[in-house]
Each structure stands twice: as C-alpha cells, then as structure tokens.
C-alpha cells in the first residue's frame, strides 16, 4: 500500500506495510538517520519528530495513518526556534554521547514554538518524555532558557 506524505518539505511515497513505524520508514527507507531508536515503545523519546506541527514518537506511529501528513525530522528542522535551540545546545556543550539529542532538540523546539517563555514547570513537563542516560538534563534546561531568551531579544 503506497502512502504519500511530506517529509522535510519533500513529497515522498512509501510503498511499505502500513504497520511499519514511521521511525523505520525514515531510517531504513529514506535514510534519514538523525532520528534514533531507543526503546520501540514510546518511553525514551530518541525517535521524536515533528508530525503535523507537534512532537511525536515515531517508533509507535504506523505509516498507514500518515497519508497526507507533514513530517519534520532533525535533518529538516528549521525556523528561528530550531536555530536558537541548536545554537544554545552547541554553545552550552549539551551533548555527551549525543544519541538522544536529536529527540531532545525536536522536543525543545516544539516547546518553544508553543510556549516562547516556558516556566521551569513547563520545561520539566515538555522534556520528561526524553531520556538521556548521560544525564545532560541540567544543561538541557539551561539551553532551553538561553534559546528562549535569544528569541525574545
């Protein structure tokens, strides 16, 4: 069954089993490898992408439900919020092993698009679904605040 959707501003057609998780369609078939596999059950957030404008776990999203959908992966993430987040991430040296950071950056970007000046509680709530075993959490908090400040300036 062929499914047509927009990925990073390009229309793509996927002729795959409709049960195929978006994660594996992106990675194995579109070779967009920035989105990572961590658990397969939406518990770790490494596979987070933007789906129709909202952060979504691609490992539990079957492509059969995505006809006409719009997907942005870390490779196609753009706009002022994404740029501010990635600049802050680099400047503050957030990443250690780096494996979870694509998902963290997508979640943080999604947060700032919806809530430009998030409170501590809003940051905690928005980022609680993204695990980081290197525990870069303190720097993630700091980078989100810095990105938020830079957008305001």
């Amino acid at each position: 069954m062929a499914i047509t959707l927009t990925v990073n501003d390009e229309e793509v057609t996927l002729d795959l089993d409709p049960d195929t998780p978006l994660l594996w369609a992106l990675r194995d078939h579109l070779r967009l490898t920035g989105t990572k596999f961590g658990c397969g059950i939406a518990q770790c957030g490494a596979c987070t992408v933007m789906l129709d404008g909202f952060a979504q776990r691609s490992c539990v999203t079957p492509i059969g439900a995505l006809e006409g959908a719009t997907v942005q992966t870390i490779e196609g993430l753009d706009g002022p919020e994404a740029e501010a987040v990635q600049a802050a991430w680099t400047e503050i040296n957030v990443p250690q092993c780096g494996y979870c950071q694509s998902g963290q950056v997508v979640s943080a970007t999604s947060l700032l698009r919806e809530v430009p000046k998030p409170s501590d509680q809003e940051i905690d709530d928005a980022m609680a679904g993204n695990l980081c075993r290197c525990a870069t959490y303190a720097r993630i908090r700091k980078a989100i605040r810095q990105a938020s400040d830079s957008l305001e300036a």
Partner: peptide, 21 residues
C-alpha cells in the same frame, strides 16, 4: 572550549553505528 562534536550531535549529523547502511 566547544566540544568538537557538540554541533554535529545537536543537528542529527553525527554518525553512530546504527546509522551505517
């Protein structure tokens, strides 16, 4: 000092084993 891998790991460009095809 900025980590040499900070940028590539913030943009999805860093290549891990799982990314090898």
């Amino acid at each position: 000092i900025t980590r040499l891998d900070a940028r590539s790991k913030s943009t999805g460009q860093a290549e891990f084993t799982i990314d090898v095809y």
